[in-house]
Design a protein around this nucleic acid. Structure first.
Lengths: 150, 150
DNA sequence: CTGGATGCAAACATTTTGCAACGCC
DNA sequence: GGCGTTGCAAAATGTTTGCATCCAG
C-alpha cells in the first residue's frame, strides 16, 4: 500500500462532497480519504488506522470507524460486509463481486455482468423481493496456489 | 421453533457419529443436536443457548459454541458465515444459497442449481482457483413487504 | 464563536481460551 | 479411573457510544 500522490481532482472532489453534505473537511477526514483512494486492496478500519498512525500518531480508531461510516453514507466508499466477519472498505463503486483467498484472505474484485443480469429462479418470488446479489467466490489465489504446490 | 420429537433414527445417527469420531455423547451434545435438528430456521449459538436454558439451566454458551464447532467439523451441521451477521448454523447440507431479509434478518434457503453449474468468467483463472461460491440474495421477505406496504 | 468532530475511555457484542471440576466410556 | 468435556471466568476481537475538549467554518 504505497502512497501515490492524490491529484488535485480528488482533493477538489472530497472538498466539494463535504461542502454539499454540510460536514467539515477535517484533517482526519482528508487523510482517511487519501488513504482510501490510494489503497490498492480492500483495507479494514484497522489497516487504515495502523497506516495512518505513522503520519498522525494521535488519530483514534473510532474516528476511523466514524469517518468510514460517514463515507459509506455519502457514497464515497462502500462498506463490504464479507462472510468472514471483518468489515472491509472499498472505493470501487462499480457493480462487482469478490474473490476471497481462503489462505491469505486477500480480496480481489470480480466483474461478472452476465451473472448480474441472469434471471433469478421462479421460486424466490414466494420468499421475497430481491434487491441485491452478494456473491463471494472462495478458493486459493495464484500466489497461494504456487506456494502450496511447491 | 417448536420442539418436534426426534425419531429414533436421528438418535441412532448422533450416537453412531460420536462413536465413529471417538468422542463422547454427552447430555449437552445430545440436546444441542436435538435443538439443531428440530430448528426450522437458522439459529445462532445464542438462539440455541437461550432455548436450551429452559431445559438445562446451567448449560454454558461456550459449550454451545464448542459443540457447534465440533458438529461443523463432523459434518453434522454447517457454520454459515453470512455477511453482516453473526454466525448462524444450518443442518441443511445440500448445496444451496440464502435469501436474507434486510428488515427482519430472516434467512431462507434458496436452491439455484443452474447458477451452481454456470461457468465462471474467464478472467477469474488469472486471480485464482475457485473452490466454492457463496451467494446471498438480499431484499425484503414477503412478511416485511406486506408490513411496509400498509 | 459555536456546533460538529475528535480523542479518550469504556461499553458492547460475539466468539474463543485457560483451567479446575466433572462425568462418560 | 482416566481423559475428554463442561462450566466458569476472563480474554480476545471488532465495533460503537458518551462525553468533555477542540477546531473548521
Amino acid at each position: 500500500m504505497t502512497n501515490a500522490e492524490l491529484n488535485d481532482q480528488d482533493l477538489d472532489q472530497i472538498r466539494r462532497i463535504c461542502e454539499e453534505a454540510g460536514i467539515k473537511l477535517t484533517h482526519q477526514r482528508l487523510e482517511i480519504f487519501k488513504e482510501l483512494m490510494t489503497a490498492r486492496d480492500h483495507p479494514s478500519a484497522e489497516d487504515i488506522h495502523r497506516h495512518l498512525q505513522k503520519r498522525m500518531p494521535t488519530v483514534a480508531i473510532d474516528t476511523v470507524y466514524r469517518t468510514l461510516a460517514t463515507f459509506d453514507e455519502l457514497g464515497i466508499a462502500r462498506r463490504l460486509h464479507l462472510a468472514n466477519n471483518r468489515n472491509l472498505f472499498d472505493t470501487n463503486l462499480a457493480p462487482h463481486h469478490h474473490f476471497i483467498c481462503d489462505a491469505c484472505r486477500k480480496v480481489e474484485d470480480v466483474y461478472w455482468p452476465d451473472f448480474d443480469s441472469t434471471a433469478l429462479p421462479e421460486e424466490i418470488s414466494a420468499i421475497g423481493q430481491v434487491r441485491s446479489r452478494h456473491l463471494e467466490l472462495h478458493g486459493l489465489c495464484t500466489a497461494c496456489l504456487e506456494q502450496s504446490g511447491e
